[in-house]
């Protein structure tokens, strides 16, 4: 099973190179290597536009898949995914309020202060933090997070937020509505290594934190009492996992909007391949999520080039049939009990 993770690392590196070369303009790898230190349009495209975007996709894909795994364990529910936690709704609303109400005259000032970090992701992240605190408070009983409360409060909070967003969408003008829709659908376009570096470091740190809880997550899926009797401080693990996953989801949604399906599907596919031991399942899902989203985004860029599709269309369009096929072939036996 360790070999699976080794194979995935090789595939990840190959995908980083492969996805960066593909696009509306085909890039010749040999030429890039030859001209690496001299000015060349191909090298320029590769390093300035393609690579940061591929790396961002990998960070988001890996992070979403890892969060999906831990949420399914924490909530003991195979349907759990990052979009289900109230945090994603909070981040969307925050981002949208940022888009609509950001006072334009502040732009040069804020731009000067914050460099390439823009206002909208920050507003989205504040929304994520507020909703995380709210859901956390709602679900905390005697130092433990109640799985059903987490799940229900998340789903209901998100449908409330969806109503607010639709309301805002119907009162703003046409151009703003287009902007909102585009932001909501999620995309990975970026030119800033600063953003990529920040999100990448953030996601990797969060992933390592979650990975260190792998053994505890195994025990948590056996039920709270059993986990306690086998030596797990359940409340502390639940709180740490919830906060770590929420912070990751908040940051990811703030930068790239709601990219669905990776966080739901990848954990299940990987569970079929490596089993349910979270010490193996977490890194395998992280790597597979990174690979999957980088290729999905490449397809989104290439299929109707020079036009771009929202990547969420690709993840669901190709992911859903593949997942249903797996479900049919395995009879669901290995997926969930």
């Amino acid at each position: 099973m360790i070999e699976v993770n080794g194979t995935l690392i090789v595939l990840l590196i190959a995908s980083a190179i492969g996805c960066s070369l593909l696009g509306p303009v085909r890039i010749d790898l040999a030429r890039v290597i030859h001209h690496f230190f001299s000015p060349d349009p191909d090298t320029e495209i590769l390093l300035r536009t393609r690579l940061p975007r591929v790396l961002l996709g990998m960070a988001i894909g890996g992070g979403m898949a890892a969060c999906g795994v831990v949420l399914q364990a924490l909530l003991r529910n195979p349907l759990a995914c990052p979009q289900m936690l109230g945090v994603s709704g909070g981040a969307s609303l925050g981002g949208i309020l940022g888009l609509i109400f950001f006072p334009q005259w502040l732009l040069p000032l804020a731009g000067g202060l914050l460099g390439e970090i823009s206002w909208v992701p920050l507003a989205a992240f504040v929304g994520a933090l507020l909703s995380m605190a709210f859901i956390y408070r709602l679900s905390l009983f005697r130092g433990r997070l109640h799985p059903y409360h987490l799940l229900l409060s998340g789903v209901i909070f998100n449908s409330f937020i969806a109503a607010v967003i639709m309301f805002l969408n119907s009162i703003v003008d046409f151009y703003q509505a287009q902007g909102l829709l585009f932001w909501l659908m999620g995309n990975l376009s970026t030119r800033a290594y600063l953003t990529v570096g920040f999100i990448g470091a953030y996601v990797v740190a969060g992933f390592l934190w979650l990975w260190s809880k792998g053994l505890a997550l195994n025990l948590i899926t056996l039920g709270e009492e059993t986990a306690m009797q086998l030596g797990i401080e359940i409340g502390s693990v639940q709180r740490q996992v919830f906060v770590a996953a929420s912070l990751m989801i908040g940051a990811m949604v703030s930068v790239s909007g709601m990219i669905g399906f990776v966080g739901l599907m990848i954990p299940h596919v990987m569970r079929l391949i490596v089993g349910s031991d979270h010490r193996l399942l977490l890194p395998a899902s992280f790597l597979a999520g990174a690979i999957f989203l980088s290729w999905a985004d490449t397809l989104a860029r290439v299929l109707f080039a020079p036009a771009e599709l929202p990547v969420g269309i690709i993840t669901a369009f190709f992911g859903a049939p593949f997942f249903l096929f797996l479900l049919y072939r395995e009879g669901g036996k290995k997926l969930a009990v």
């Binding site: 399914q72 364990a73 003991r76 529910n77 195979p78 053994l215 505890a216 195994n218 025990l219 899926t221 056996l222 039920g223 059993t226 086998l230 030596g231 797990i232 569970r271 089993g275 349910s276 031991d277 036996k333 290995k334 997926l335 969930a336 009990v337």
Partner: peptide, 19 residues
């Protein structure tokens, strides 16, 4: 005994060694 995800018998017994 209820499990939320599929574990083999060996995995379940080994969880006793977590501490």
């Amino acid at each position: 005994s209820a499990v939320a995800f599929p574990y083999t018998v060996a995995e379940i017994v080994l969880m006793a060694r977590a501490s």
